[in-house]
Design a protein around this nucleic acid. Sequence first.
DNA 1: TCGGCCATTTGGTCTGACCAATTGACCGAC
DNA 2: GTCGGTCAATTGGTCAGACCAAATGGCCGA
Lengths: 237, 237
Amino acid sequence: MPIEAIEPRRLYRQVADHLRDLIDRGEYKVGERLPTERELSEKLGISRPTVREALIALEVEHRVRIRVGSGIYVTEPPAQSPILVGPAEGPFELLRARAFIESAIAAEAATLVTQADINAMDHLLDAMERSSDAGTKAMVGLDRQFHQTIASIVGNGIILRFAGDLFDQRINPYFQRLSGHFETADTWRAAVDEHRAIRDAIASRDPGAASAAMRHHLQQSQHRFSTSFEEEAASPG
Amino acid sequence: MPIEAIEPRRLYRQVADHLRDLIDRGEYKVGERLPTERELSEKLGISRPTVREALIALEVEHRVRIRVGSGIYVTEPPAQSPILVGPAEGPFELLRARAFIESAIAAEAATLVTQADINAMDHLLDAMERSSDAGTKAMVGLDRQFHQTIASIVGNGIILRFAGDLFDQRINPYFQRLSGHFETADTWRAAVDEHRAIRDAIASRDPGAASAAMRHHLQQSQHRFSTSFEEEAASPG
DNA sequence: TCGGCCATTTGGTCTGACCAATTGACCGAC
DNA sequence: GTCGGTCAATTGGTCAGACCAAATGGCCGA
């Protein structure tokens, strides 16, 4: 390992780290205003230019937003998972990508599945059965967990993460605004039944059936999505 | 779309953008030193604190490295494609992920391929035939282009980009240091033959054969990679 | 109730000073 | 000829204080 220069922590960096830590710990929440430059300078016992340097670092990191004459406001931290959907791609491209990868995963899972995997799927399906009135957040969590359980059978962290990111991208605020009908009892019932069909196909170690069941599930899911997408598109607001 | 405050370009931001542009255009190359703070202040007709603010922005973006008493050095820009390999994952995880996705792509391509796609694959294989002594960079480019041509048959930008990123991650400097034997005439010949077998399976619209041919190709490629990986691991330096 | 005015507060940029790390030249010892 | 020490110059780091411009909030008259 080549010897590298040991760089001392610069004051602006220390201050930026300190402020970021305060934000991360909840001392200052998103939308709240930080103390003014002069206040920070006084409190921290450092010069105002150095405070400004620290704030610029946080601005570049998209942690704060500086408004002339108004103040320094905490912003929503940038998304942790990568943005997979390019600028020219819409929600359907994402759904088709997901259908493709998830059906390939289901086929592969059907060749590698163990009894422990089947038990894990059963456990999740039981939890889904009991959750028809659990609320959107819990239902989405269970849905994600079921798909991640299948993806984990493949035994590859990169594929697992990619499938998880595709799922997450589906429920980011933009997509959520377009789709608001997943959480009805009927659609949940249908989703659980489709999940069970996937489980059965994987458990019977039939790659073709597993792939087809997953495609069918995601097509149905897409249909439920499209219905609400077209409803949203037809009614401006 | 909610009305947002129109924020005027701050001077430090303008200066940072200008310097980044100079770097991107090759005026200052990686490793080179930028003019000193005082020189930039004089040349740009702005104060030294404002120059410092701009340099801090570039430092946070990982475009420059500032060394006290020495100067400001241009650094390698951060990777454009997302880092797909997690900290706990090694090169084999990446290769297995790639084998999984590329074989699924080949199977799907076999169901969707058109004559134009086949022509494109043939065109690339001809170029590869003629390039056995073209140098590593050109060979890698052709290899990537062949795999991207197949991936584009699937008709999904997200899958295309993911496959491309997996390929690129394979040839980042770390992996390149581990593998230095791809570019021999024999290994190139073998790769071209394997590519041709993939083309034939896709052209014959046989998903099973296409998937198997792609798996075989990547397994052979992995074997060639492993051979040099183990050589590197066995001989420290 | 609303618009105009004004003082205050806020961030933006600047000048100039001084401190500390690095660099390069020079010189003497070996 | 090489190496280590010294020193001056150059470089980035931090600071104090000043002044400018945008935003905010209070007050007042229509």
